Computed example of a mutant assay.
Amino acid sequence: MKHVQLLDKLAAKHLVQTLDEDIARLVWLAMAMEKHSEQASRIDAVLPPLLARWNSVFQADEQQVAPLYRHKAWLALATLLHKYGLADHAITTQALAAFNELNRAVALDDSFYRRSDEFISDLQSPPAALARKPSLPDDTTFYRARDVIAIELDGRFHAAYVHRLARINESPIIEFYAGTFDHVPTLEALEQLPAQGQTYNNGTQRRSLHSVSGIKFQPDPANQITLVAACITSPPDSSHLAPPVGLHSVSDIFKIQDTIRVLFNARA
Rank of each mutant, 00 (worst) to 15 (best):
G246Q: 07
N100W: 08
N100T: 14
D252K: 00
A230G: 06
S213A: 14
I232D: 06
K13E: 15
A90N: 13
A266C: 12
V4N: 08
E170A: 03
A105Q: 14
L26V: 12
L29K: 11
L15C: 06
F157D: 03
L247Q: 13
K83Q: 15
K133H: 04
P235S: 12
S121C: 04
T233R: 11
A95W: 01
I149L: 08
R104W: 07
A268N: 10
V212T: 09
E21Y: 10
A73S: 15
L102K: 05
H248P: 00
Y177K: 09
A90W: 07
Q17P: 00
L247F: 06
S239V: 10
E101R: 06
R267V: 11
S135G: 02
A32E: 13
L29N: 10
P185V: 10
D154E: 13
H158L: 08
T141Y: 01
S238I: 05
P219C: 13
A12Y: 05
S56H: 11
L6S: 05
H163I: 05
Q205H: 12
Y143E: 01
R132L: 00
S135I: 00
Q257K: 05
K35R: 12
L165C: 01
L96D: 09
A52P: 04
R164M: 11
R70A: 10
L10C: 06
G246C: 09
R144W: 02
L50K: 03
S37F: 07
Y143F: 07
L153C: 02
T141V: 02
A129W: 01
T186R: 06
H82Q: 15
S234N: 11
A98E: 09
A222W: 08
N169L: 01
G85I: 01
A128P: 00
T186W: 03
F119C: 02
L241M: 06
I174D: 03
V57C: 05
S121G: 12
L193R: 15
A195F: 04
R164C: 03
A266K: 15
D110A: 12
Q205S: 12
A150K: 01
R53F: 03
A268L: 08
P221T: 09
S238K: 10
L50C: 00
